[in-house]
């Protein structure tokens, strides 16, 4: 079990305020989607709750302990992070990359043990990349690479997972796979937070949504509470076809909302 409490969090990037006075609580067993237009502060928010970005004001606590007082290793053991972009600088094999996820558990001189290998193996099965294990990651397709990086985060066996746009460059089938995987992790007790752009995916799989706009948390709650035609217009500046009542909620963007300025 792990709980992240965010209180009055503000953060800036290069002197520009990106996140203003944000408060929320992220709990175990919950898949939380962070949504909002580009530049809304989604990535800044997830980086700040991991201590990757210093908070300008406010506090972030993991299980009641302020992250400012936690070592990077303590945070890494509690929460795994999947950064945006799937960067990889060396042509490493899939298995080597996934094993990087075990780093928070290894001392500088200790060897990789059976337990670590088992965690790596399980992570590769969960992300469906076992058949790729000997391949070089830089030679894989974008979708395969995304799943390798996801397996890398899963291998940490952390109680929380924070994924920044895990669906980018995935085909619809693998998007569904990744969302089901994250939902399953949450059902099994993990605290899962993911930045998403696909609102249908967000509506369908997330237990809770955080809607950010220009650094401010404008709505928080179940997908049904957060997603509305009104918010699509005011936050995203679009019109869309929405069906939130059925068992499979759907949000399909239709066009730009043209009269945003005139109607205020």
């Amino acid at each position: 079990m792990v709980t992240i409490a965010v209180k009055g969090l503000s953060a800036d990037l290069g002197g520009r305020a990106v996140l203003t006075n944000m408060s929320t609580v992220l709990r175990s067993g919950t898949l939380t989607g962070v949504i909002g237009p580009n530049g809304a502060g989604k990535s800044t928010f997830v980086r700040a709750i991991l201590g990757l970005l210093p908070a300008l004001e406010g506090s972030v606590t993991i299980d009641g302990r302020d992250i400012a007082g936690l070592s990077p290793r303590d945070i890494a053991r509690a929460i795994a992070y999947l950064p945006q972009g799937h960067t990889l600088h060396w042509p490493l094999t899939v298995e080597r990359v996934v094993s990087l996820g075990r780093l928070p558990h290894l001392g500088p001189m200790s060897r990789v043990g059976e337990h670590d290998l088992e965690a790596v193996r399980q992570a590769m099965i969960r992300a469906d990349i076992v058949h790729l294990s000997g391949r070089t990651v830089t030679e894989l397709s974008g979708g395969e690479r995304a799943r390798v990086m996801l397996a890398r985060a899963l291998a940490a066996d952390a109680r929380g997972i924070v994924a920044d746009e895990p669906l980018a460059s995935l085909d619809p089938g693998h998007q569904i796979d990744v969302m089901e995987l994250l939902a399953r992790e949450a059902r099994q007790g993990a605290m899962v937070v993911t930045v998403l752009h696909d609102l249908t995916m967000a509506a369908r799989y997330c237990d809770r949504l955080l809607l950010l706009d220009r650094g401010v948390l404008v709505a928080e709650g179940t997908p049904r509470e957060v997603l509305s035609a009104e918010r699509l217009r005011t936050v995203y500046g679009i019109t869309g076809y929405m069906d939130m009542a059925g068992a499979s909620p759907m949000v399909v963007p239709l066009g730009r909302y043209r009269d945003r300025q005139e109607q205020g």
Partner: peptide, 23 residues
């Protein structure tokens, strides 16, 4: 040679390395 694994972690970028517990 103090912490070679920090170099491995940097293969996935600075944020990635820090999120793996690298100082």
């Amino acid at each position: 040679l103090h912490d070679p694994r920090a170099l491995d972690a940097l293969a996935i970028g600075e944020d990635g390395a820090r999120s793996l517990g690298v100082d």
